[in-house]
Design a protein around this nucleic acid. Sequence first.
DNA 1: CCTTGGGTTCAGAACTTTTTGAACCTTTAG
DNA 2: CTAAAGGTTCAAAAAGTTCTGAACCCAAGG
Lengths: 159, 159
Amino acid sequence: MTELSAQRRYAEDAAVVLNGLGLPPAYGKLLGWLLVCDPAWQTSSQLAEGLGLSKGSVSTGMRMLETSGLARRVPVPDHRGHAYEVRPDAIIRVAADASKFRVFRELMERGLTVAGGEDAPHTERLRVMRDFYAFIEREMPKLVERFQAEYDTEGEVHG
Amino acid sequence: MTELSAQRRYAEDAAVVLNGLGLPPAYGKLLGWLLVCDPAWQTSSQLAEGLGLSKGSVSTGMRMLETSGLARRVPVPDHRGHAYEVRPDAIIRVAADASKFRVFRELMERGLTVAGGEDAPHTERLRVMRDFYAFIEREMPKLVERFQAEYDTEGEVHG
DNA sequence: CCTTGGGTTCAGAACTTTTTGAACCTTTAG
DNA sequence: CTAAAGGTTCAAAAAGTTCTGAACCCAAGG
C-alpha cells in the first residue's frame, strides 16, 4: 500500500461512515473527496485518478450524488465537458426534502389499515409512529428554515 | 407461491422500504410483522413460522431491533422464554438519539481540518454542513420533546 | 465528415452481506 | 438428575451488490 494523501484518507474514512448507512463505498469516497478537495470542483478523470476508481464507477457514483441533490455539474473554462462540485447548500436541500418522511408515514398508515383501522385494539405503536412521521414531515422544513435564518444572520461571510 | 396473509404481505413491503435504507431484509420483515400483528407480542417461533425465516435469522434480526431501540423482550405467561414487541415509544427513542448526528458533525470537523482549517478558502460547503449537523444535534431532542408534549395533550388515551 | 476527448452503459467478475442449519449452550419442569 | 424447549452462535452456502473495463455514443473542432 503506497502513501495516501490526507484528502484521500479522508475520502476513505467518509466512505466507511456512509457505507454504514447502506451507501456504496464509491459514493462515500466521491463525496468525501469532493468535500475536502481544492479547488472544490473536480473532473471525472481527476476523481477517478485521485480515488483509484474506474470511469464507470465515477460516472455511476456521481449520478447518485447528483440525484440525491448533494453535487452538481459545473462548466470548466478551457475544458471539454464539465466538473463536479458539492453544492454549498447540499445538506439543506437534502434535509428539507420531506418526501423521505412521507414514505414512512404512508407505510404506517397502511399498517394501521392492515391492523384493523384507527380504533382497532393494540395499535398504539402504529398510531404513535404515524403521528410522529406526520409531525416531522411538517416540522422539518420549518427547522431547516430556522437554520438558514440563524446562519444568514450570524455568519457575515457569504459564498 | 402460496397465498400470503395481509400481515405477511405488509411485512414484505416494509422489508422493501427498510432495505432501501440499507437494512437487511429479515430486519424489515420482523419489524413490519411486529407492527401489525395481533397480539403485539410474538415469540421467536411465531416469527420464524409467520415470516418463513430460520431460527438463526430471527435471533440475529431481533437482536438488531433490540439494540436499535425499536423492540424489547416481554415475558409471556404460560410460556418458557420470552416474546418480542415493538416498544410503543420506539420511534421517539430512536429519533431523540442525537449520536447519529454527532458522527456526521465530527466528520465535517475533521474535513475542515484536512481542508486547511476554519479560515481556509473554498471551505464554505464544509462549514455549512458542520454547522447544520451541530444545529440538528441541538434541536432534534427539543423537537421530539415538543412532539411528546403535543401528543400527550391531544390524545386522551394512553397505553 | 472524420477524429478525438469525454461520458455513459452494461455484462460479467469480484466482493460483501445475509441467511441457513447444525452444533451447542442454558434454563426449567418433572 | 434428566429431558426437552428455547435460544444463540458460527461456518458455509446462497443471495445480492458493487466495480470494472470494453463497447458504444455524442459533441466539438479541425
